[in-house]
Simulated scan of single mutants.
Amino acid sequence: MALLPIADAQARLLALADRTPVERVRLAKAIGRWAAEPVVARRTQPETDLSAMDGYALRFADLPGPWTVIGESAAGAGFPGSVTPGAAVRIFTGAPMPPGADTVLIQEEAAREGDRLMLAGEGPAYPGRNTRRRGLDFAEGETLIATGERLTPARIALAAIGGHATIPVHRKLRVAIAATGDELVAPGAAIGPAQLPESNRTMLAAQFADLPVEIVDLGILPDDLDALTRTFADVQADLLVTSGGASVGDHDLVRPALEAAGATIDFWRIALRPGKPMMAGRRGDMVVLGLPGNPVSVFVTALLFAKPLIAHRSGAADPFPPLRAAILAEPLPANGPRTDYLRAAVIDGRVHASAIQDSSMLRTLARSTCLIVRAPHAPAANISDSVEILDIA
């Protein structure tokens, strides 16, 4: 069976399911989600000309003064009258500019004796200096947040000042996570010589922590076809992610169990290292992802497939992790027929690949800050060559 290229596998995976339904949530609950519809300004910001500094609102044409101070304008309580020739209004940052005034003389360049105001510095250089004009940030009807943009703290604040209390997003995904293997025990439990603490469920939940998901922990499942089939048939979720049992050994039972539970496998085995045995399919409306068992393989396949799938179904315009260029600190050998993701770290501006790339070694992964992406059949690379990396820390 030919191995499926990564890009083809990613495209087929995203095509397996539509985005979740749209709902509106309060802004405080929207962080980290994606806008399901354009967020359009319901007001103009600022709604009127404002002062950008503490000082005096006046007419630029009246420079160099002197002026008579006729009142005060503070944020939330503007001056009720207007500024006439030779007059000035004491004003504070964020306060409305009174009608007739077009410029602010900052207080550091002003001298005042009672109501008499005089220039004590260079003064404003042009009309409108030290002011914020109406609509400087945006005007009513402008799109503030486009469909598919991530709702960052700044964008949530933008929606708030644009007049919104809620924002349209896609419903959170219910994600079920299971580990398989008779050798696995819960973290912290006593283990025998043939046993291993299970780490993949915890790692996957941590990888999904910044995504809009509700995690369902199915625990550690035995290498038993009937038990796996029953569990998979009963799962109610948008996405089922398993780790282990995805290869072709006698104890690799995830694929037959999924099929016995009614799932259809869309693809299996990818031109990827680490993570070749990954599989994907559907059972009804639920997408199923069978990840390998080795922790590094789980991390990489979750990064390239599970997280983008969740982001896509949650409305992300671009769900895939971005690549960037980096300079090699040491040479790399020519690559084989699969895309290789090498654990590495950027140190002093150059990227260093880890000496050992065994997919069971979590400490190497924990010390890495990025993955070097090596295309299939990439030629040997030399010191100072440019390579593509994917940041992971």
Rank of each mutant, 00 (worst) to 15 (best):
A2F: 11
L4C: 03
D8V: 15
A9R: 05
A9Y: 01
A9G: 14
A11Q: 15
A11I: 06
L14A: 10
A15C: 05
T20I: 07
A36H: 10
V39Q: 06
D49P: 07
S51T: 14
M53N: 07
D54G: 07
A57T: 13
A61T: 13
D62C: 13
S73V: 10
A75T: 10
P80F: 10
A88D: 10
R90C: 11
F92A: 13
G94M: 13
A95F: 11
P98G: 09
P99A: 15
G100V: 10
D102H: 11
T103F: 12
V104A: 05
E108M: 09
E109F: 09
E113T: 14
D115M: 07
M118I: 11
L119W: 05
E122K: 14
G123K: 04
P124W: 05
R133I: 11
L136N: 08
F138H: 11
A139I: 12
G141V: 06
T147Y: 05
P153R: 10
A154H: 12
A154M: 12
R155E: 07
K172Y: 04
I177E: 03
T180Q: 08
V185G: 07
G192L: 11
R201Q: 13
A205L: 02
A206D: 12
F208N: 02
D210L: 12
L211M: 13
P212M: 04
G219R: 12
L221P: 10
D223L: 10
A227S: 14
T231N: 08
Q236D: 15
V241S: 03
S247K: 04
G249D: 03
A257H: 06
E259Y: 03
I265M: 03
I265Q: 01
R282V: 08
G290H: 00
G293M: 05
P295L: 12
S297M: 01
A302E: 01
F305P: 01
F305V: 00
P308I: 03
A311F: 08
S314R: 10
S314P: 06
G315P: 08
G315F: 11
A326Y: 05
P331M: 09
L332A: 03
L332R: 03
L332Y: 04
P337N: 04
T339D: 01
D340L: 11
I347S: 11
I347R: 15
R350P: 03
Q357G: 00
L362D: 04
R367W: 07
V373H: 00
N382G: 14
N382F: 08
N382P: 00
S384Q: 14
D385E: 00
E388D: 15
I392H: 02
